[in-house]
Amino acid sequence: MVDLAFSTNAYTRHALPEAVERIADHGYAGVEVLGDEPHAYFPEFDEANEEDLVAALDNSELRVSNINANTATGYYDDAPPSSFFDPSVVTADDGDREWRVEYTKRAIDLAALTDAPAVCLATGRPLPGTPPERAHEHLRDSLDSILDYAEEHGVEIGIEYEPELLVECTEEVLDLIDDVGRDSLGINLDVGHAAVYGEDPAEAIRRSAGHITGVHLEDIVGGVRGKHYHRIPGEGDLDFRAIFDALDDVGYDGFATLELYTYPDRPDEAAREAYEALSGYC
């Protein structure tokens, strides 16, 4: 059976412990921790912050579904436009790329501390000067180091594909997993990302059977080939009955996490409405 979780990335106007407690109020079994500002930006997330998080988890009795290390916006004092994923594990600059590898290892540390099963990681984009073939070389080198560390700590790494990134669809992430050949590498499957790329989310789930480390849920207006804007389930056109049936068909029994960072002005409302829309499928 799938358990519902909610990401703290909707609660960016609240401190991390408060976000955890608010999410617990809406009936969720789990919480995804944003591994970035303003919650767990790892260069600044110290032992006291860890203790506060653990206390909030203990008080709320929530489990951690995932550490979301897709972005590292805290890296920049004045972030350039659309820098959400940069520096990434495919960035051309060796120093910046190594910084991102070490950042991901700190996410793995937090996953181990909180008993989270996985860390999700976006590949980033092949920027000008870094053609895709070279970016793939950087990705493989980065993953070798990250996966060695993840395996030592009993944590899985889920690649989250997204249109316009180096790895942007189900076929590409499955090819990467096959190429790397390590059981610790899987897919954090965002159903909305599958849809806006033009895939049937239920079919993407079935194709990914045995490799899913986590699931992100949101609705998309227009469904397949719709615009990439995360909506509360019921406000778009995705077929969540088909999505949950597919998760059941492949035997997935982990967390499905609502990722509604698009509602920072009303996260409690988004969390409540999403739970009401989806809890009947679990």
Score class of each variant (00 low, 15 high):
Glu168Pro: 01
Glu18Asn: 12
Tyr103Gln: 07
Asp77Gln: 13
Val119Asp: 05
Asp141Tyr: 02
Arg63Ser: 15
Arg225Pro: 03
Asp144Ile: 07
Thr213Val: 10
Gly210Thr: 03
Asp179Trp: 08
Ile212Ser: 01
Asn68His: 07
Ala135His: 01
Ile212Asp: 01
Leu127Pro: 00
Tyr75Cys: 09
Gly254Asn: 07
Glu160Met: 04
Asn188Lys: 01
Thr8Gly: 11
Leu110Asn: 03
Leu247Asp: 02
Val196Tyr: 01
Arg182Ala: 12
Tyr28Ser: 06
Ser60His: 09
Tyr252Met: 08
Glu218Gly: 00
Glu199Leu: 07
Tyr161Ala: 04
Gly181Phe: 12
Leu16Asp: 04
Gly154His: 08
Trp99Tyr: 15
Val90Leu: 05
Asn49Trp: 02
Arg125Glu: 13
Cys282Arg: 13
Pro126Asp: 12
Ser7Gly: 15
Asp200Ala: 14
Leu247Phe: 09
Ala19Gln: 06
Ile157Asn: 00
Tyr103His: 13
Asn59Asp: 15
Phe45Asp: 06
Phe85Met: 06
Ala48Gly: 09
Arg100Thr: 04
Ile243Tyr: 02
Pro38Ile: 09
Leu139Ala: 02
Ala55Gly: 07
His136Arg: 15
Asp200Ile: 08
Ile67Asn: 09
Asp78Arg: 12
Val155Lys: 04
Asp58Thr: 13
Ala209Gln: 12
Ala274Tyr: 02
Ala270Pro: 13
Cys282Gln: 06
Pro126Leu: 05
Asp265Phe: 11
Arg140Ala: 12
Glu61Tyr: 09
Pro132Glu: 11
Asn59Trp: 04
Leu4Arg: 10
Val221Lys: 14
Ala256Pro: 08
Glu47Met: 12
Asp178Trp: 01
Phe85Asn: 00
Ile146His: 04
Gly181Pro: 03
Glu44Met: 08
Glu273Asp: 15
Pro81Thr: 05
Leu143Phe: 07
Leu113Lys: 14
Glu218Asp: 15
Phe244Ala: 11
Ala10Gly: 12
Asp148Val: 12
Leu185Arg: 04
Ala92Gln: 11
Ala111Ile: 03
Arg106His: 10
Ser7Val: 02
Tyr263Gln: 03
Asn70Thr: 10
Ala29Lys: 14
Asp237Thr: 07
Gly223Asp: 03
Ala195Pro: 11
Ser142Arg: 05
Leu238Phe: 05
Pro126Gln: 04
Asp144Phe: 03
Tyr229Gln: 06
Ala48Tyr: 10
Tyr161Cys: 03
Val119Ala: 08
Ile205Cys: 10
Asp179Gln: 12
Ala256His: 06
Glu164Val: 12
Thr257Glu: 07
Thr114Met: 08
Leu121Gly: 02
Pro43Cys: 11
Thr130Met: 15
Leu139Ser: 00
Asp179Tyr: 11
Leu143Met: 09
Val215Ser: 04
Glu235Trp: 08
Thr73Met: 14
His26Tyr: 13
Leu176Ile: 05
His216Gln: 15
Asp248Trp: 00
Glu171Val: 06
Val173Gln: 05
Ala271Ser: 14
Gly35Leu: 03
Asn188Gly: 02
Leu139Gly: 00
Thr71Trp: 06
Ala10Met: 03
Asp144Trp: 01
Glu151Tyr: 06
Gly186Cys: 08
Gly210Ala: 02
His193Lys: 10
Val167Pro: 03
Ala69Glu: 00
Gly30Asn: 05
Val173Glu: 07
His14Tyr: 15
Ile108Gly: 05
Ser145Asn: 09
Ala5Thr: 04
Asp249Leu: 10
Glu168Leu: 01
Ile187Thr: 01
Asp265Gln: 13
